[in-house]
């Protein structure tokens, strides 16, 4: 439907600012679909302005300690759902161990928005083009969510996305953190995206990681949800040849179903997916 009114202000809502996770989960439990959590607001406020969502209550989750956690332990990286990307990027281990994620974050939206935007928000929106989805898969991320009704549960990132702007999150559930195991030595990862100019949403995003045991690929903006592939069984002798690539491409091609939109045609998306896959495989394997 064509928009016939263009709103300038935001619709009416109340604001709640819980100081603990418990308090936040209570609020979510009470308001269910009538509320929305606010972290960076870079997607939320835009959707509000366009009246794509009209919650009665906005729950600001930035005062909750669990959601502000940013920690690298010998086993694991934990990124609280409300940590701004610019802060995540200050952690030196991101670049060393999680190269694909680092590359995605460093080129996500822009320098100013990165001071507000969060990884939690990026996946919660569940856009098919969510830049972090591919890297999170290649780093085998697990999302910790909590709710009053179901308590805590862990969702593997490849089970998180359910459709265009649909995730596995129940209305009363809140993303607490995103957790990634420390990769084994010699793991290489990379992220690349294609866009029309310096500032654009990705028309295709591709990420990959590779080590002795596993090779993972993740793609965005090529299907209603991000597309994840474990191609470990296709990588023979740790080498990539045209033949090996063709067998990998067959798998990818069967899983992607890109659309034509303002950013790109379906055909170009397929072509770019192929080129980025080649470049990434070369980067992480050869």
């Amino acid at each position: 439907m064509t928009e016939t009114i263009s709103y300038v202000g935001l619709p009416k809502f109340e604001i709640e600012v819980p100081n603990s996770l418990e308090e936040a989960l209570n609020l979510l439990h009470i308001h269910q679909t009538n509320c929305k959590p606010l972290a960076g607001g870079t997607d939320l406020l835009v959707d509000l302005r366009h009246r794509l969502i009209q919650p009665n209550v906005i729950i600001d989750v930035k005062n909750i300690p669990e959601l502000k956690k940013l920690e690298f332990t010998p086993n694991e990286l934990t990124i609280g759902a409300a940590v701004p990307i610019s802060e995540v990027l200050t952690l030196s281990q991101i670049k060393t161990y999680y190269t694909a994620l680092y590359q995605a974050l460093n080129d996500m939206c822009d320098e100013i928005l990165r001071n507000r935007a969060t990884i939690g928000g990026n996946i919660a929106t569940a856009s098919p083009a969510a830049d972090t989805a591919g890297p999170l898969y290649t780093h085998q991320a697990v999302v910790e969510v909590q709710s009053k009704s179901k308590g805590s549960r862990l969702i593997a990132i490849d089970k998180f996305f359910k459709g265009v702007k649909k995730s596995d999150l129940a209305p009363d559930e809140l993303i607490v953190s995103i957790n990634m195991p420390k990769p084994t030595i010699n793991t290489k990862s990379a992220f690349m995206k294609m866009k029309r100019g310096a500032e654009d949403l990705a028309l295709v995003g591709a990420a990959g990681s590779h080590n002795q045991e596993h090779t993972y690929l993740g793609f965005t903006a090529v299907a209603p949800t991000p597309v994840f592939l474990d191609i470990s069984n296709l990588i023979i002798e740790k080498k990539i040849s045209e033949n090996v690539f063709q067998s990998i491409w067959k798998e990818i091609d069967s899983k992607i179903s890109p659309i034509t939109d303002v950013r790109s045609s379906r055909d170009y998306r397929i072509h770019i997916t192929e080129i980025l896959t080649r470049l990434i495989l070369k980067e992480i394997i050869l």
Binding site: D200, D261, V262
Partner: peptide, 15 residues
């Protein structure tokens, strides 16, 4: 289909 400054791409500093 592109009535905004992200879908209608215009040059930025890095371009």
């Amino acid at each position: 289909l592109n009535p905004n400054l992200v879908d209608y791409v215009i040059s930025r500093a890095a371009d």
